[in-house]
């Protein structure tokens, strides 16, 4: 499967970077073609501009994000690797969604239709690998907004039978080295499959 890994963390030495390496390595070992996108290394502009907003009904990505749109169209498995902050995707990753998943790339709204039509039918799997500072219980109370953005909003733009996956470590702030190592092992097992 063509696998696109979109990675988002400001610190290159973070635990999330180790998680990314585990995903990429296990995916490649299982024989998949993998492309990695590092939004911080790119210095991606997260803020949707006034010009983009005014033309948001004009199909197609703006030239500045065309490369990002191309790789979205290329992949069959999309993997987002990021830390959960304020119960959702970091602003950097939210900006990637705001600016790249636009009309003509992720969806269409044909003349007279009342609902958007999904365009990323190439995406058969969409998985988040994320860390939460606080416990699972606290995150349930907060409503798991980031999980729902992925499993409901984003998945709906993929293939009708696209599956979503949620690989999450909770309680990172109070975790031990052994727990973090166990999570990396679980990540390798999950992504090291032929499918």
């Amino acid at each position: 499967m063509n696998t696109l890994v979109v990675y988002c963390h400001p610190d290159a030495t973070s635990f999330t970077a180790a998680v990314r390496d585990a995903v990429v390595d296990s995916r490649r070992r299982a024989g998949h073609e993998v492309r990695v996108r590092d939004l911080y290394a790119d210095g991606f502009e997260a803020r949707l501009s006034a010009e983009e907003r005014r033309n948001h009904r004009m199909p197609g990505p703006r030239p500045a994000v065309a490369g990002y749109a191309d790789e979205l169209r290329w992949c069959q498995h999309l993997v987002l690797v990021y830390p959960t902050w304020w119960s959702g995707q970091p602003a950097m990753l939210k900006g990637w969604i705001d600016r790249v998943w636009v009309q003509g790339v992720a969806w269409d709204l044909p003349e007279g239709a009342s609902r958007v039509r999904a365009r990323l039918r190439n995406i058969r799997r969409i998985t988040a690998v994320t860390t939460h500072g606080s416990s699972k219980w606290i995150n349930s109370l907060e409503g798991e907004g980031g999980k729902r953005t992925l499993t409901r909003s984003l998945r709906a733009m993929g293939h009708p039978l696209a599956r979503s996956g949620w690989v999450a470590m909770y309680g990172l702030d109070t975790s031990t080295a052994a727990q973090r190592a166990a999570f990396l092992t679980a990540v390798r097992r999950k992504f090291g499959t032929r499918r």
């Binding site: 997260a46 803020r47 949707l48 950097m92 939210k94 705001d98 907004g145 953005t149 984003l154």
Partner: peptide, 8 residues
Amino acid sequence: WWSGPPAM
């Protein structure tokens, strides 16, 4: 946008 606040 995308069920949440803008990245800003």
